Amino acid sequence: MSDEIADDRRVQPIAVDNGAPIISFENFAALGHNQGRYAISLTVGIPVSMSDGSVPTVHRVVAHLYADARALQTLRDAIDKCFVLSADAKGKAQ
């Protein structure tokens, strides 16, 4: 048995980029696809004080996500794993 790991199982190093944006969102405004590319516009609600004293929430697009099906599946898998982590943490706290 070899100590080497098959190429498809190697962990790929990721360079840390402190300039990468952190995107916080609450919803999406639009989504679509064209020729194998998918698009999702992510939004956040921002309270805005008006001169009449009201404070309506204005929804603004904070990012446009463009990806192919493989990349979206990878994102879906990561989101699913976040929910599993959350469920595990809740189970340990009880």
Rank of each mutant, 00 (worst) to 15 (best):
A29D: 11
A30V: 11
A30K: 14
A30M: 11
A30I: 09
L31E: 09
L31I: 04
G32V: 08
G32H: 06
G32C: 09
G32M: 08
G32W: 08
G32N: 07
G32A: 06
H33G: 09
N34A: 12
N34V: 12
N34M: 11
Q35E: 15
Q35M: 13
G36C: 02
G36F: 03
Y38T: 07
Y38N: 05
Y38D: 06
Y38I: 08
Y38M: 10
Y38H: 14
A39T: 12
A39V: 14
A39E: 14
I40G: 01
I40F: 07
I40H: 01
S41Y: 07
L42E: 00
T43V: 04
T43W: 02
T43K: 01
V44K: 10
V44D: 01
G45A: 09
G45V: 04
G45R: 01
I46K: 02
I46N: 00
P47F: 04
P47C: 07
V48S: 02
V48E: 09
V48N: 01
V48R: 04
V48T: 04
M50R: 14
M50F: 09
D52G: 09
G53I: 10
G53E: 10
G53H: 10
S54A: 14
S54V: 12
S54M: 13
S54E: 15
V55I: 11
V55W: 04
V55A: 06
V55P: 02
P56G: 03
P56N: 02
V58M: 01
V58G: 00
V58K: 03
V58A: 00
H59I: 08
H59W: 15
H59Q: 14
R60A: 07
V61P: 00
V61S: 06
V62Q: 02
V62K: 04
V62A: 02
V62M: 03
V62P: 00
A63M: 06
A63D: 05
A63C: 09
A63I: 05
H64D: 15
H64A: 13
H64S: 14
L65M: 06
L65G: 00
Y66I: 15
Y66A: 13
Y66D: 14
A67R: 11
A67P: 10
A67G: 15
D68T: 14
D68R: 11
D68E: 15
A69W: 08
A69L: 15
A69Q: 13
A69P: 05
A69M: 12
A69R: 14
R70P: 05
R70A: 15
R70T: 15
R70S: 15
A71E: 07
A71D: 04
L72D: 01
L72T: 01
Q73L: 07
Q73C: 03
Q73G: 07
Q73E: 11
Q73S: 07
T74V: 07
T74P: 01
T74N: 08
T74S: 10
T74W: 04
L75E: 01
L75F: 05
L75G: 02
R76V: 06
R76M: 07
D77K: 05
D77L: 06
A78M: 03
A78S: 06
A78C: 04
I79N: 08
I79E: 09
I79F: 13
D80Q: 14
D80S: 13
K81E: 10
K81Q: 11
K81W: 04
K81C: 04
K81Y: 05
C82D: 10
C82F: 06
C82V: 09
F83N: 11
F83I: 08
V84K: 08
V84S: 09
L85W: 13
L85A: 12
L85S: 12
L85H: 12
